[in-house]
Amino acid sequence: MIEVARLTKRYGRKLAVDDVGFTVRPGRVTGFLGPNGAGKSTTLRLLLGLDHPDGGTALIGGRRYRDLRHPLRTVGALLDGAGPVPERRGVDHLAWIAQSNRIPRRRVREVLDLVGLTGAAGQRVKGYSLGMGQRLGIAAALLGDPEVLVLDEPVNGLDPDGIRWVRDLLREYAASGRTVLLSSHLMAETAGTADDAIVIAGGRIVAHGSLDDISAGHESLESAFFALTGDRRGLGGRGGRGGRGEW
């Protein structure tokens, strides 16, 4: 369970996240939607203890991320701009992560197999394609077999087979009673994967509920999204992809 309440973050005079609150329930995939610069990445950084909020709380299983006893066994995260040193081999990147949280070495081979990178495990990351890098990031998130998954644009760069695999993985994860928060700007992908959605625009939550509730009265999730975010797009602060208000 993820519980965010009255979360606020300023960068200088810019209010990046403004009184944000939502709950992500276990057993469901929750999409976290918003235009670039809406506050998605900032919210995720605050949730994962990578930044300090100016106000409010972000709890995972009732605790702040920084207070988790086993962070990587509790939360698996894939974040934009959080990756390996390019000169390191993929397997070594996963090895140090596993060591840091007392995750057995055999788990490295398991997740490499899981994401289809066994054959490229010994390659240096700088030789990976965008999709392979994304798979390595997903492998790192899965290392601790965590209770909670927080994934920021996990299908970026993946081929159709990889996209379907991610979708199935997230569905399976949620079906086993675990919590999945999926940040994305791909409406069709989110509509095909998520049970619930949180829509953020201009640093504020503009909708939160089941996909059916959010889409009610609109042709699709996409049209609902445009209707909800139309006059707030790009008003937020330091978005992960530059906050340019672009799609």
Binding site: R69, S100, G116, L142, D145
Partner: peptide
């Protein structure tokens, strides 16, 4: 990309030596 994740046994808290 084929299988679902498998369980990871809890081998105790994280120590400074692990880091």
């Amino acid at each position: 990309m084929t299988a679902a994740p498998t369980g990871v046994p809890d081998t105790g808290g994280i120590r400074l030596t692990d880091l």
